[in-house]
């Protein structure tokens, strides 16, 4: 229990240092605009091209219409971008900030919040694609969209403990980021980003055992006017509790050692 308390202190302190991570994350995005007027929007643009390009091919592969398939793929790729980038970049949350960590005594969680905030800013850029996509395909947005925000928060809270664990581990073992990148790559193909969950049986292990499927469900369905399944919420809430307990205990035990590993 003492370990968990140490972890809680680190996380609470990290939120307390909001000026620091907010400034750093903002600067990360501003930096992309400095050398080009379009900045981060270049990447948004390339995602839009990918959505329309892949959409055309997979819609005919799956034998559905573009109007039916594009909103599914578009939301899927945009949301997957947020999830995969946050997880991949969490690995270097501590190793990228080593010069600051070695000079200023700030809670470790501060640096993870920098990674998450930066990816949220980038996600906000990519979100611009969706209204355009919905307009083109004539997708109707209804009251379900109100569920998007709680869904996003639930996913972020889960990504935070995953990133917290990975950041600590990656400081000690420098081959973790590569391992994580491969796992995330595989996860892309077994998660319903490109294909639709309805193309599988409802109780297919890919949908139940793969937490990414649940994360996509609670964020995507509200956007396209459906209700996410209750199972997805239960899985994510369960993971949230168990994951945070593990991450907090782990951080309580090891986060003070991180500085010696950098």
């Amino acid at each position: 229990m003492g370990l968990v308390a140490g972890g809680v202190a680190d996380v609470v302190g990290g939120f307390g240092a909001w000026r620091m991570w907010w400034m750093l994350a903002k600067n990360d995005v501003i930096r992309r605009y400095r050398r080009s007027r379009v900045g981060q929007l270049w990447l948004t643009l390339s995602m839009a091209v990918m959505i329309f390009g892949m959409g055309g091919i997979y819609a005919s592969l799956f034998g559905t219409s573009m109007a039916d398939y594009l909103p599914h793929l578009g939301t899927g790729l945009v949301l997957w971008g947020l999830m995969s980038q946050t997880i991949n970049e969490s690995c270097s949350s501590f190793t990228d900030n080593d010069s600051i960590i070695r000079q200023v005594a700030l809670p470790r969680f501060t640096y993870l919040l920098r990674t998450i905030a930066r990816n949220l800013f980038i996600f906000a850029h990519n979100l611009i694609i969706l209204p355009v996509l919905f307009l083109v395909t004539g997708t109707v947005i209804d009251w379900h969209i109100l569920l998007f925000v709680p869904g996003l928060l639930l996913v972020l809270a889960n990504l935070a403990w995953i990133g917290y664990l990975l950041a600590i581990l990656s400081a000690r073992f420098r081959d973790i980021p590569q391992i994580v990148a491969s796992i995330v790559q595989v996860a892309f193909f077994v998660s319903p980003v490109v294909f639709k969950p309805s193309q599988l049986r409802g109780d297919h292990p890919v949908l139940i055992l793969n937490p990414f499927a649940s994360m996509l469900d609670v964020m995507r369905e509200p956007l396209v006017g459906h209700l996410p399944s209750a199972t997805s919420y239960l899985i994510l809430l369960g993971l949230l509790v168990v994951g945070w307990l593990v991450a907090l205990a782990f951080s309580g035990k090891y986060s003070h050692r991180v500085v010696y590993w950098l």
């Binding site: 070695r102 000079q103 005594a105 003070h256 500085v259 010696y260």
Partner: peptide
């Protein structure tokens, strides 16, 4: 570094 609380 110990004195600046960086190294516990």
């Amino acid at each position: 570094r110990v004195l600046s609380r960086v190294y516990p």
